[in-house]
Design a protein around this nucleic acid. Structure first.
Lengths: 198, 198
DNA sequence: AAGCAAACGCCACACTGTGGCACTTCGTGG
DNA sequence: CCACGAAGTGCCACAGTGTGGCGTTTGCTT
């Protein structure tokens, strides 16, 4: 479960509420009418928010649609920070993601699959996600400095690749309980992938 | 060297010439003034082409800036098609890229580093490149169907990741002769990356 | 209660990308 | 050789995204 500590002030709670309303309306609205073919104004009218305030909360139309993805990686980095770093790094990355998945709440498991479907049929969104992934990877590398640069970077790339593979297999059904097993399987296949013959 | 067979008709040669002029002016102009801060109109005035015709040749501003990248992968897919597929797939992917690098001509080795620098300081371009990479990966997978899906997909991801790592190390200097060695090294490090300890 | 700062809404603008339509230019067949 | 069709181009207008300015509301503070 995500620890959702309420901010003290009313002002911040209000702002957070519109942020959530925007993110929530985004996945449903874009899901119904398609990301590319839904003007941003439709979302703004839906939530009754001016364009100006929208762009104070989110950097772009893509940004708001990918809220669930960002939340996941935020939690992941958080988990990684609180992890004892010893042993094989690949195991650390994997188990950190498994605990991350346990921490996500029910509402996230509703919104995340919707987001994945949006990504699947909008190249613009896909590009944005990949770019965000790259930033997260750089952030992970930064927190594990002192390692061999090349190998560390490679391993991080490999892990994220495995994660995306697992998501692709998860996408059709999106049964929450299935995802950890798929990720485990993808990670377990990494070694044999390298020696794949043809 | 890239086989640049001239199209027969004058019309097609003319069109090709404006395409090249656009791509060439793009890397230099964006390189001087920055991708995000250079309006597309500046490029159009430079090449003396209307917006309408530009968009008949390229799908977006990002598209024209990434011409060199696309050319590389086009050649790569071509090389891969003409390769005898037997032995370890990882070796096949690697040597296909090495021959690809040999096939690229001098002008490409001038434009490609410029393009990499554009990508490095424009998130929008980076996202676009990553998206394009993903399409190429899907294309590679399609041409090697019949393999185990998960492991094949993983290996392709790994290879492209190694390629990007090599590029990152190559970026500061961009000595053409260095790139193959960097790529070899990255590929050679894949195994030990998986067993990285901390 | 009053003042301050954050957040908001409205307006105007720059830039990217698309569709319609007329015009030029190239290729081709009588 | 010329005349016609098609590909390519330019111009115009428009939708959509994202930004800056500025006055106003709203919540926090003392």
């Amino acid at each position: 479960m995500t620890t959702s500590e309420q901010p003290a002030t009313l002002r911040e709670r209000k702002k957070l509420r519109t942020r959530q309303a925007l993110a929530d309306a985004a996945v449903t609205l874009f899901g119904e009418r398609g990301f590319d073919s839904t003007p941003l104004d439709a979302l703004l009218e839906d939530v009754e928010v001016s364009r100006r305030t929208f762009f104070r909360n989110y950097r772009s139309k893509e940004d708001v649609a990918l809220t669930a993805v960002k939340q996941l990686w935020d939690v992941y980095l958080d988990v990684l920070d609180g992890t004892e770093k010893s042993g094989p790094l690949a195991d650390i990355f994997l188990s950190a993601m498994l605990t991350t998945l346990e921490r996500m709440d029910e509402d996230w498991y509703r919104r995340f699959p919707l987001t994945l479907r949006l990504i699947a049929d909008s190249p613009a969104l896909d590009g944005h996600t990949l770019r965000h992934c790259a930033e997260v990877q750089a952030e992970i590398a930064r927190r594990l400095d002192g390692q061999d640069r090349l190998e560390l970077r490679l391993l991080i790339e490999f892990f994220v690749a495995a994660w995306r593979c697992a998501l692709d297999e998860w996408l059709p059904e999106c049964t929450p309980g299935e995802l950890p097993a798929l990720l485990r399987r993808a990670c377990a296949s990494m070694n044999s992938a390298l020696t794949l013959q043809v």
